[in-house]
């Protein structure tokens, strides 16, 4: 499996995941840099993502939405804090209205991504997701759990279906 480590800190409200891919760093970077590739993995299969704006530069804005099976769309935004191709990316991820305008009342997640070359043509990717404040986390608990759990459960169902199909 490609996930090699997961750590969660309930006090700091962070989740850090480390994964390895059999591909060069420049190629793994493409899944962040190329919006058409990004769309193929950001949303779960049941809620595919569409990136409307994609400016991968410091201060750059992104607007994306995920489409639910019933056709409802959930909009989000990214703001690029810093980017150092092809090894480092820091961004803020939040909720948006249909036009992609950030909703200031909803919490923001800070994500840090680093890519590093390992022996044997392997790229190690570390993603660190952090909630800014305890209040923000409490809001996420209220707003996100239901949606987040639904998305995660749908995703697990999909993975199980895939696993069943290959056995």
């Amino acid at each position: 499996m490609s996930v090699i480590d997961v750590s969660k800190d309930l006090d700091a409200l962070t989740m850090t995941m480390t994964a390895e891919f059999v591909a060069p760093v420049a190629k793994v970077w493409q899944v962040w840099e190329n919006p058409r590739l990004l769309e193929r993995w950001w949303g779960p299969p049941t809620h595919p993502a569409t990136f409307v704006d994609h400016e991968l530069e410091p201060g750059g804005r992104m607007h994306y939405f995920m489409t639910a099976p019933e056709g409802d769309t959930y909009h989000g935004w990214w703001r690029i804090v810093s980017v150092d191709p092809p090894t480092a990316l820091e961004l803020e991820d939040g909720f948006a209205d249909d036009e992609g305008n950030p909703n200031p009342d909803l919490p923001v997640t800070v994500m840090r991504v680093t890519l590093s070359e390992q022996p044997g043509g392997i790229t190690r990717m570390t993603v660190d997701a952090q909630y800014a404040t305890r209040e923000g986390m409490e809001q996420v608990i209220a707003m996100g759990v239901e949606e987040g759990m639904t998305l995660a459960v749908n995703q697990i169902d999909g993975l199980l279906a895939e696993a069943a199909a290959t056995t």
């Binding site: 490609s2 409200l13 193929r40 990717m125 608990i141 759990v145 697990i156």
Partner: peptide, 23 residues
């Protein structure tokens, strides 16, 4: 909070699996 972090972990495990498949 713990469940939420678990849900976030699941979300990212799915993403990592999809990136792996994509690559």
């Amino acid at each position: 909070a713990s469940r939420l972090l678990d849900a976030i972990e699941d979300l990212w495990r799915g993403r990592i699996a999809r990136i792996g498949a994509l690559l």
